[in-house]
Design a protein around this nucleic acid. Sequence first.
DNA 1: CGAATGATCCGA
DNA 2: CGGATCATTCGA
Length: 156
Amino acid sequence: MKAARIVEVEAYLGGRDPASHAYRGLTPRTAPMFGPPGRSYVYFVYGMYHCLNVVTERDGVAGAVLLRGAEPVAGFDKLPPRALAGPGKLARAFGLTTEHTNLDLVRYGATLSIHDAPPVPASRVVRSARVGLNDHATTSKPWRLYVRGSPGVSRP
DNA sequence: CGAATGATCCGA
DNA sequence: CGGATCATTCGA
């Protein structure tokens, strides 16, 4: 069983967020983003990487959080350093594919699940612009959060 | 900096 | 259908 502590995330909304996959409405790929919260949204990008999101808004409203970085906790043997630092690397380390989209992450005993952890002190939390976006208007939103100094963060 | 690499979506 | 785009990563 593999486990990791999430240390970097980015928020994406629906119609008002041009950087969001859900910006142009519901499509087969983005359908999970419009579904009930607590489910996964996994997409394939750049022809070789998968990214894992957690759906956050109520059923019918698009919104999700992209998991961008984590620290290994259990189940990773001889993991190369920073192998979980980055959304593509994180998804790869857990062997995630689009088969893992729209799964219930909150259900007890689920194959893929997310859990509570001790709170991160506010002094360790950094807010910044989201990574990898072209549009200038969208980068103005400070919707990336990460743990200061964590080796699981993709980029300082 | 640019290549890798293919699913997705829009417009025609 | 065709082609532009892409919430990335790695290596020169």
